[in-house]
Write a protein that binds this DNA or RNA. Structure first.
Lengths: 225, 225
DNA sequence: TGACACATACCAACCGGTCGGTATTATTGT
DNA sequence: ACAATAATACCGACCGGTTGGTATGTGTCA
């Protein structure tokens, strides 16, 4: 391979972009998904045009329809990407995920979600929650993709909740997955209130209620609030 | 079939009504607002075209722009109408609003909201909640109109919550208006989950959590659940 | 008669999507 | 080893239909 590289030294300029100081040379597909998520969170799915996404991503319309059969297909792909992004940002990277005590870890989760409620709404709101609100009747593929993302989050959170229930018990007829979905509901609703007010404070208040509820369920109110 | 025009032909009190500040019951205008609310709840604001609203309302585009300066103006007017509709349907017409005990009345409210979560999502979801999610960054008049509607609901609900707190006390640092907004948040979030699942059951589960939370706050868990 | 409540016709901008083409990379035949 | 071929990635002009909005006409009633 050394021989071929010396001979073709002139033409091997494009390939080692990752090695050189050039930007990571992310492919157009990834850039389109990222741009779509940002734009849809800002102004909604229907109000976002394909051209707009292309400009935000820095690619042409030709590239868009090379990678995605339709705007709908991009939405489905972006919902899938959002699942991975959320898993990373919420369940993998933060420090609290390594808390040993399951109830402390659960409260760490809620506390983390609360701490995210700051700055412009388009920076903390849920991409799939925004999208499914518009598309649930118009596109079943999009609806299903958003549902899958929400379900993945709930199932992941339910693991921690179940562990906490197993260890501490819960004096009520509460199932872990149900409570996980309730956490989701409070967050999604809090996002809407924050958007309406133009201020995330009201959203934080609502999550504070959620915090108290969970602590009460585990009979720990006053101890950790 | 179209007898509405001849039937309404007799009424004519445009001048006095205009002086009184209340717009006269213009037929096309009311039909447009009603059609807009229904269509937006079904497919969102941006995806709903002016033509579509006109067809659903059974009026022409000329009538639309005679009554409303723009699509945005219609949205603002519809948000105002929604406030009145919700006040009627939720705080005036139902039987539970006449329950004497304030805590029972508050629980009657939540129970009523829970009972609404049935059938297609477009029949129980919140018009202004749907709209503000799309428009919060694109149109401040729409955002403000939706905020006003949500705030009116919260303030109205907070009255009953405050009365219940005054009578029964509440062993926590909970303010009535805060809790009222939390009720709103849970409902709005439950709507999103129901849309994603294509099934209101998950929404009912979340409102059941809300019910338990409120009862716990008042120290009545197990007594009325 | 003239203000009001519509109806009809129309428009420029924009929409999602198509299409013919090019540059680059990977595979293959000899 | 290398030309021929094929596949991929991308470009941007273009298309028919739709969009919110306008200009103007018409019937009705005080």
């Amino acid at each position: 391979m050394d021989a071929s590289r010396t001979i073709n030294a002139k033409k091997s300029k494009a390939a080692p972009a990752a090695i050189a100081g050039k930007p990571p040379a992310r492919n157009a597909r990834a850039k389109l998904i990222e741009a779509a998520i940002a734009t849809v969170r800002y102004k909604g799915f229907s109000a976002t045009s394909v051209d707009e996404i292309c400009v935000a991503a820095g690619v042409t319309k030709g590239a868009f329809f090379h990678h995605f059969a339709s705007k709908e297909a991009l939405a489905v792909a972006a919902a899938g990407a959002w699942t991975d992004i959320a898993e990373q940002r919420i369940f993998t990277l933060p420090d609290w995920v390594r808390i040993a005590d399951p109830l402390d870890r659960l409260m760490g989760h809620i506390e983390f979600r609360l701490s995210m409620l700051d700055g412009p709404a388009e920076d903390f709101t849920c991409f799939v929650g925004t999208m499914v609100q518009e598309a649930y009747n118009s596109s079943d593929p999009i609806r299903a993709a958003c549902d899958a993302s929400i379900t993945a989050y709930a199932r992941r959170l339910a693991e921690d909740i179940q562990t906490a229930i197993d260890q501490y018990g819960i004096g009520h007829d509460v199932r872990a997955l149900d409570l996980a979905y309730h956490v989701q509901a409070v967050l999604q609703g809090a996002f809407i209130l924050a958007k309406a007010k133009g201020n995330p404070e009201i959203a934080r208040d609502s999550v504070a209620h959620l915090k108290r509820y969970v602590l009460m369920l585990f009979g720990k109110e006053g101890e950790r609030l």
